[in-house]
Computed example of a mutant assay.
Amino acid sequence: MAVQCRTQSGLRDNGEISDISAEGCCMRTRGIYLRVGARVVLRPEGMEGLTGIVRWVRSDLSGVEFDRPMYGPVVDHIVATHSSRAA
């Protein structure tokens, strides 16, 4: 799923999120390097911003824990919508 990422310091990048759950997601960015502990705002395509903290980083992938869990049915809808696009 396409996402725009903004760091607390104001850096922005477009990327992709995957493995989304109510508590967080995996994000791939190309233009910025994120560090563990960084605060971010993720703006997935068609949604309001989600705030969170980077918990792990491996190359261009990072794990983000959301500040507040997403509503379960919203997560289910996102997964169903985007997994059908991939298929």
Score class of each variant (00 low, 15 high):
residue 2 A to F: 14
residue 2 A to H: 15
residue 5 C to D: 01
residue 5 C to G: 02
residue 5 C to A: 07
residue 6 R to P: 12
residue 6 R to D: 06
residue 6 R to M: 06
residue 7 T to H: 13
residue 8 Q to W: 10
residue 10 G to F: 13
residue 11 L to C: 08
residue 12 R to T: 11
residue 14 N to M: 12
residue 14 N to F: 14
residue 14 N to L: 14
residue 14 N to T: 10
residue 14 N to W: 12
residue 15 G to L: 01
residue 15 G to P: 07
residue 16 E to K: 12
residue 16 E to C: 10
residue 17 I to P: 03
residue 18 S to V: 04
residue 21 S to G: 11
residue 21 S to T: 15
residue 24 G to I: 00
residue 24 G to D: 00
residue 25 C to H: 01
residue 25 C to W: 05
residue 27 M to R: 03
residue 27 M to S: 08
residue 27 M to I: 14
residue 31 G to E: 08
residue 31 G to I: 03
residue 33 Y to P: 06
residue 33 Y to R: 15
residue 33 Y to A: 10
residue 33 Y to Q: 12
residue 34 L to Y: 06
residue 36 V to A: 05
residue 36 V to H: 05
residue 37 G to H: 03
residue 38 A to L: 03
residue 38 A to N: 03
residue 38 A to E: 03
residue 38 A to Y: 01
residue 38 A to D: 03
residue 39 R to C: 01
residue 39 R to W: 01
residue 40 V to F: 06
residue 40 V to H: 03
residue 41 V to S: 08
residue 43 R to F: 04
residue 43 R to H: 05
residue 43 R to L: 07
residue 44 P to W: 02
residue 45 E to I: 04
residue 45 E to N: 05
residue 48 E to Q: 10
residue 48 E to V: 07
residue 50 L to Y: 08
residue 50 L to G: 02
residue 51 T to N: 07
residue 52 G to I: 10
residue 53 I to G: 01
residue 54 V to I: 14
residue 54 V to M: 08
residue 54 V to S: 02
residue 57 V to A: 04
residue 57 V to W: 05
residue 59 S to I: 06
residue 61 L to G: 00
residue 62 S to R: 01
residue 62 S to T: 06
residue 62 S to Y: 04
residue 62 S to W: 04
residue 63 G to W: 00
residue 64 V to M: 06
residue 64 V to A: 08
residue 69 P to F: 01
residue 69 P to T: 04
residue 70 M to F: 08
residue 70 M to H: 12
residue 71 Y to L: 11
residue 71 Y to G: 05
residue 72 G to E: 13
residue 72 G to N: 13
residue 73 P to N: 11
residue 74 V to R: 13
residue 75 V to G: 10
residue 75 V to R: 09
residue 75 V to D: 07
residue 77 H to C: 15
residue 78 I to M: 09
residue 79 V to E: 04
residue 83 S to D: 08
residue 84 S to Q: 15
residue 85 R to N: 11
residue 85 R to E: 11
residue 85 R to T: 12
